[in-house]
Design a protein around this nucleic acid. Structure first.
Lengths: 188, 188
DNA sequence: CCAGGAAATGTTAGTAACTAACATTGCGTC
DNA sequence: GACGCAATGTTAGTTACTAACATTTCCTGG
């Protein structure tokens, strides 16, 4: 039900923000500047994005991931279920990764504060995975640890992908990360 | 070389902060209030702690961890080296965990923003582990993923310990977390 | 005991990310 | 073309944090 006008200003804000961030750096860019560049006031910015960082992130894949984890056979250990679930979710519905995505990740990857904020998002994903596991009888501690480990690994891979020059696809990094958590050592 | 006077005000600030946080919540407590409670100005607060959150955290164990990881046999896979290193560092020099520590962790555990900030600290630890692994010839990607996975698991265990009522020692949670990453399934 | 100097703290003024309350403008519908 | 609601603007705050400079406190040597 989002109005087309709102959607346009939202996109404009995102584009201007990305441009300014790459041009002069994240910290050196103020919300006021972004808003002005997009032709709106700073209040409008905050109506579309709750925080300055949120203009860089968006990640509506949580339900998908939860489903993929839930679909794993319950006789596997929790860590393995999360590992296969994440891998499966990725290969089933690979999110679009374009040049803009890369730019966004790059900005985040080199900025400790932003990486931390990105982790805040991860926490929501973690919650979702934990619930999926607990629904199958796993204890909360085991579930949280399994989710934390896998997401920690994926986050690390994401940051690496964002800082390297090499133009391998993000998917390759994700697969590497998850394979490393394979107790069998995975395919060699 | 820290002067005794400075050390005392630092401690006073920490104590007052903890008290106010537990009494009225982290967000509802202003730095000004903490400073006033400690009998100093807000500038003094920031001279001792770079940010508001930093009054809750401190974690000078990075060198220890790096050493423990470095000491692992290099023919083990990276993840296993980190896993054993962290487990070893913990059992070798368990940090003092008192009621105050628990209070601090509790405050952090229920506050998403604070958890994210705590992750910012983790990143420094991650860096240290990555360097230790790379010194033994591991690729940066593999090293980062191994460190990210283990720290993600430990972080998850820490948060669980901070939110549960059960008074099991933190060490038990850490061991559980690391055991879950054991590819052999660990001791049953 | 007191003077000198450095470390710790205070004062003041400023920036930037947010928030709340209320006014205004644009845009589709009847 | 008026009406009504969503999107935006204005204004005035609060709070974390920084910089520059003034002041106090405390230790040390004479």
């Amino acid at each position: 039900m989002t109005t087309p006008r709102a959607e346009r200003t939202r996109a404009r804000l995102q584009a201007c923000a990305l441009e300014l961030f790459t041009a002069q750096g994240y910290d050196a860019t103020t919300v006021e500047q972004i808003a002005t560049a997009a032709g709106v006031s700073h209040m409008t910015f905050f109506r579309h994005f709750p925080t300055k960082e949120s203009v860089l992130v968006e990640d509506p894949y949580d339900p998908l991931i939860a489903e993929a984890v839930r679909a794993q056979p319950t006789d596997l250990p929790p860590l393995e279920r999360v590992r296969r679930g994440l891998l499966g979710a990725w290969s089933a519905v690979p999110p679009p990764v374009d040049a803009e995505t890369r730019k966004r990740v790059s900005i985040m990857a080199v900025h400790p504060g932003l990486r931390a904020k990105a982790w805040e998002n991860n926490q929501r994903t973690e919650q979702v995975i934990v619930e999926a596991l607990m629904a199958a009888g796993t204890s909360r501690l085991e579930a949280t640890v399994a989710a934390g480990a896998c997401l920690g690994a994926i986050m690390a891979a994401l940051v690496q992908w964002g800082t390297t020059d090499d133009d391998a696809p993000l998917g390759a990094y994700i697969v590497t990360a998850m394979t490393q958590l394979d107790p069998t050592g995975g395919p060699r």
